[in-house]
Every structure is written in structure tokens, then in C-alpha cells.
Computed example of a mutant assay.
Amino acid sequence: MFVAKYVKRDRFLKELSLGVLIFFSPFLVQFHLLFSETDTTFNLYSWEYSHGYDSNLAYAWMVLLHIIPTLLIVVYYFHTIKIHRYAILVCLYWLSYDFLKQGTNLENHWLIPLVILLIPLFSFKNKTSNFFNNFKIARDSGLRNTFFCLLLVLSPIIGTISSNISFEMKSVDFHLFELGNFGFPNFATFLWYLALKLLVLTPMVVFFLSEKKWWRYALLSPILVTMYQLRTGLKPEIDVIDEHEIFEAMPLLLGILLILLFLAKPAYYQNKLKTIYQKNHTRAEELLSKKYGNKSGEFENLKNRFLSFKEDRDKNAILEEELLSLKSQLENELQKSTTS
């Protein structure tokens, strides 16, 4: 009971922290500027790590390009319906696979991320039945969830294509038009960069459209910054990417921040009212139990039936008349308890 009260009381703080984390996540890419443009190894006392990149700055940039979408997708994983989680695991697998491929010298690096695909076996109860029930829920809820899951599953496909293209290729000729490398060293690198940006943009757009809580507007921050970064990346004449886009988007980011501050105040008071209600409700139940003992048992049974019918009304096709009848029985039982 104490744990439940504590979680209830801190729900607003949890949501606020989540909003702050999401809003400022795109700013993490700026940290790569703190690393050296000339050094090619990391040294800590006698330990030395050689990454094979042209500079520590380039390596740090590559690492942050993987950390940011991974962080955001993990948040999405824990705040969405289960059917979306299966699709999200595909994105997490590709991000882990690509990071190990780009940033380490491990052999068979594709095997390690397979552990991610085992997450549902440990995180969901009644694994097999839940797996198929979740797909039934997605089907019954219409095309919306099916379309969202399809987008999530297909998000890493560009990155997969980039892994199978020769680094010698500079462009692709589609007869009607030619797709170049947009200033990147080769076409494969351009597709790789595009894939990492789409792995921020696509899941966050889906997350924003499916989430209903007030902090969802914080998702506009990574969406907006990623769009600015993509715009810069598609300009061949620009040599520097992922550095100045935060400042270009700053006016709009400030507007998003003001919206979040405006929504946070009523959310705080709403959470406070819910906490007071929960506390009074728990206190009333304790008093009833103490005063009437077993006499309140029938009332508790009726109340639980009423709440169960109310929650599952649509699923079980419970008639409105049955709910009204049960409500009337509840009122009568409560009246008997108070007059006896």
C-alpha cells in the first residue's frame, strides 16, 4: 500500500523528468565537439583504445548518433502498447548491430544484439498467448496500429541496404534521375546517416501520434531537430553537420518549451487532486472495515463487480441496464451499512 501511494504521489515528477529527458536528448550530439580532431586513440592511464576513425571527434559523433535514437526508443518501449514493442525491438536490434559493427572490432558482432529479441520472453507474462493476443488487439483496433508497426519494422531497412553497398559507389542511376551522395564520402555513408536519422524521426512521430499524456509535446524536440539535421545533410555544399542545427531550431524549441510549461501546471494540480482522492478513498475503506467488519463484505463484492463491469463493458458487451441495477444495489447496501 505504501509503495502504491508513493508511486501515485510521484507520478507528476516521473512524467516531468520524462519530458525533460526527451526534450533535451537532441542536445547530446553537441558533446562530440568536446573531443579532439587530431587524436585517434583514447588514453586512460596505461589503457589505450584505438577505434580506427580519423579522429576522436568523429568516433564520438558516431557513438552519439547511436545513443540518441536508442535512448528515445527505449523510452518509447516502456510507454507504449505491447504490440508496438515487438516492432520497436527490430529498431533496437539494428541500432545495436550497427554500433558494434561501426565501433568495435568484434567478430560475429551480429550475434550479440540477438539478446534484445529475447526481451519479450522475460518481460511479458503468458508469453505465447500474449504474443498472439497482442496481434489480435492490433487487428481489432483497425489499420492504425498495423500501419504504425509496419513503419517501425521498416525503419531500419535503409541502414540494412547501406551495409550491402560498396564504398566505391558514389551515386545510383535510376534512369529518370540520379541519386548522389549529397557530399558524403560515398553513397553507402549517405544511406547510413539517413537511416540513423530516420530511426529517430519515424519512431518519435509514431510515439507522438499514439501517446495521449501532456508530456508528449516534448517529442516534438527530437522530431524538429532531426528534420533540421536532415535538411543540412541533404545539402552537398555544407561540410559540417550536426553542429549548428540546435541553434537554428532554437526559436521553435523555445515555443515547444513554453507549451510544456503551460501544460505542466494543470497536470501537477490534476495529479495532486488524484492523490488526495486516493488517500481519502483508502481512508474511507479502512474506516468502513473497522466499524462494520464483515458487514461491509457484501458492499465490497458489489463494488468490485461494478468496477469490473465498468472497465470491461465494451469488451464483454455488458448492457447499460445491468450496470444501473448493480449501481442501485451498491447504493442500497451502502445505505444499510450507514443506518445500522
Rank of each mutant, 00 (worst) to 15 (best):
M204S: 15
G159A: 03
E107C: 02
P203H: 07
A60W: 05
E211L: 09
E300T: 14
L224V: 14
F147G: 03
F306H: 13
L143H: 02
H175W: 08
D98H: 06
S36T: 04
W94H: 08
P120I: 02
E237F: 03
N126Q: 09
A264Y: 05
R144Y: 05
N56A: 03
I88W: 09
F27K: 09
F309Y: 11
T160K: 10
Q278D: 11
D98R: 05
E237P: 06
I137D: 08
L18M: 14
M62R: 03
I137H: 11
L224R: 03
K272M: 13
L258W: 11
S308R: 13
T80C: 10
F177H: 02
W61P: 00
L194C: 13
S25T: 11
D314M: 12
L334N: 11
H51F: 11
L117S: 06
W47K: 07
E333W: 00
F184C: 01
E211P: 00
S50H: 13
K212W: 06
L117T: 01
T202Y: 08
I223K: 07
N43I: 14
V206Y: 02
L121N: 02
T70R: 05
H66P: 00
K170S: 06
D173K: 01
Y86L: 12
P266T: 08
Y277R: 12
L33V: 02
N56D: 04
L288D: 09
T339A: 13
T202Q: 05
P69F: 03
G233Q: 01
L323M: 14
G159V: 01
L260V: 04
T41L: 09
D10Q: 14
L224T: 14
K8A: 11
W215A: 09
F262V: 15
M227K: 03
V240F: 05
G297L: 03
N130K: 00
F208G: 07
L319A: 14
R139Q: 06
H175Y: 11
G142Q: 04
F147E: 02
L323I: 15
N130A: 05
N145G: 10
S46P: 04
E300V: 15
V3Q: 15
K327W: 10
L253N: 02
P69I: 08
M227P: 00
L114F: 05
R313M: 14
I112M: 04
P26M: 04
M204A: 12
A4M: 06
S155F: 00
E298F: 08
E333G: 05
E333L: 02
L57M: 14
Y77K: 10
I238T: 04
K136Q: 11
L326I: 12
L179R: 03
Y45W: 15
L261V: 11
Y6L: 14
F187Y: 11
A195R: 06
L65K: 09
